[in-house]
Write a protein that binds this DNA or RNA. Structure first.
Length: 456
RNA sequence: GAGGUUGUAGCUCAGUUGGUUAGAGCGUCGGAUUGUGGUUCCGAAGGUCGCGGGUUCGAGACCCGUCUUCCUCCCCA
């Protein structure tokens, strides 16, 4: 090796076992979506910059990977803007395309573009990688898979309920020891801001509140003070830190807090409805929690917002989503409400790995490996292999007449369940030897009947 | 975007205040064993010390830059 090799920052290779594990997760998610009638779609890895920019807030825009123009298009670079220090304008002139940052915005574009080819309410799911120019950290990558499901064209809260049931189904299937679905509502957050008379600082407030479980009440207060919130406002929001008890008890406390505020109370009604439809959560294991500090950064959410955390492991949220009323309006189609969730496959992978929840069968190699003793016997093995494959078995024939020791080691490393010995000796007396690689036991069969005997 | 941290064999890591030819374990390959793996024994191969520059008689070690790793912010899946 003449050079130190590495994948780019924040990306990873996936060995066969990793891919199997990830497929296991994808399968759980797509099965759940399919069972509720969601249909799969795909969109391109990259979009026009104009489609993505400005949809995720300033912070999000900064994290979008841009694709450099090539060839003659590069000549259109706005050097004047560069000289004037207008870096954003200069960057824009260099790049007309960008890697997708999530699957929701491209989906909104998709819906508007194909509105005459799909029928509403449209339910789709999509499993594809997304890219963010973020600094890598625990559970954060620059390339990762999102598994999204959205419903557009229906403002019924039954969609929210359905999506939470899908979350439940996925994590039950994956045998998570427990998870908490946190719910909040942007309308409630807006109501809180209105009650406090700080509508314009809504985002500062929610960003600070969002950190409550991390930096505590004191930390939040400090941050709010440094953001310029006065003592009167701080006093007003005080009760929000003290919310306690069950979902319904918290609802009651918030009703007090928001009394008289139409927007906020509507938000609470919505949360109450969703909660009332989800009665089969297993206590302690599957928790539905009302959390006013849940904000979620994406600023296109307008209604209920959802975030899921796994129990018994330190990891950021493994699924998130919410309702967005105007996303397609950004692309010229008004009056189409949508709601969606996004599973973070790579984080779920990390969770399952650290809790050792992947089924052991995933690591199994071929059911049977035919050892290779000569071209003529390998040809016969090929025939048997084809027959076994038609019975649904995974079969390999070792490609060359290597030393037996080497072939056995390969079988062992691959996790082969059985090895088959068919060489000149066996050919001479019309037999074949099957060896169980776990127990080490060997058994001799008659070539005429061995397949049905062994399958039997 | 801010601050810190890391990089030596395929992998995990030693490497003394700067001083000859950079080491170990695991893995790989070969042999003990010419038709039997996962245990054992013997042997071998494998390194531009992340990359570029600098200081020095001399740099894996010190300095600067850069890329990368992991972490704390910011933000998020």
């Amino acid at each position: 090796m003449s050079q130190k090799l590495n994948t780019p920052k924040g990306t990873r290779d996936h060995l066969p076992m990793d891919v199997r594990k990830r497929e296991y997760i994808f399968n759980a998610i797509s099965k759940a979506f399919e069972s509720y009638g969601y249909q799969p779609i795909e969109t391109p890895s990259f979009e026009l910059s104009s489609t993505l920019m400005g949809k995720y807030g300033e912070e999000g825009d900064r994290l979008i990977f841009r694709i450099l123009n090539s060839g003659d298009k590069l000549k259109k670079a706005d050097v004047e803007a560069l000289n004037n220090g207008q870096l954003a304008k200069f960057a824009h002139s260099l790049s007309e395309k960008a890697l997708r940052y999530d699957l929701t915005v491209p989906f909104a574009r998709f819906v508007v573009q194909h509105q005459n080819e799909i029928s509403f309410p449209f339910k789709r799911y999509q499993i594809q990688p997304v890219w963010r120019a973020d600094r890598p950290q625990h559970g954060r990558y620059q390339e990762f898979y999102q598994c999204d499901g959205d419903v557009v064209g229906s403002d019924s809260l039954r969609n929210e309920v359905e999506l939470i049931r899908i979350i439940q189904q996925v994590f039950r299937f994956l045998k998570l020891p427990g998870f908490t679905v946190k719910l909040n509502n942007r309308k409630v957050l807006s109501g809180i801001a209105q009650v406090c008379g700080i509508q314009d600082e809504l985002i500062s407030l929610t960003v600070a509140l969002d950190k409550l479980d991390k930096i505590g009440k004191e930390g939040v207060v400090n941050e709010l003070v440094s953001k310029g919130f006065n003592a009167e406002v701080l006093k007003k929001i005080e009760p929000l830190f003290e919310l306690q008890g069950s979902f319904n008890e918290r609802l009651l406390q918030l009703r007090d807090f928001l009394s008289g505020n139409e927007m906020g109370l509507l938000g609470l009604e919505e949360l109450s409805f969703v909660h009332s439809k989800l009665k089969d959560f297993i206590p302690g294991k599957e928790v539905l929690e009302l959390d006013v500090t849940l904000a979620r950064g994406l600023n296109y959410y307008t209604g209920i917002i959802i975030e899921v955390k796994a129990h018994e492991v330190e990891m950021g949220s493994i699924c998130g989503g919410g309702r967005y009323d105007d996303l397609t309006a950004l692309f010229g189609l008004k009056g189409l409400s949508g709601v969606g969730i996004s599973f973070g496959a790579d984080r779920i992978y990390d969770v399952l790995n650290s809790l050792d929840l992947f089924p052991s069968q995933l690591s199994m190699g071929p059911d049977i490996l035919f050892l290779n003793f000569s071209d003529t016997t390998a040809d016969v093995s090929d025939g048997w292999a084809a027959e076994l494959r038609s019975h649904g078995k995974t079969v390999e024939v070792y490609p060359s007449n290597a030393k037996l020791q080497k072939q056995m080691k390969y079988a062992n490393d691959r996790g082969a369940q059985w090895t088959a010995f068919y060489g000149d000796e066996e050919a001479a007396n019309q037999s074949i030897v099957l060896k169980n690689m776990t127990s080490g036991e060997q058994k001799t069969y008659n070539v005429a009947t061995w397949i049905s005997d062994w399958l039997g």
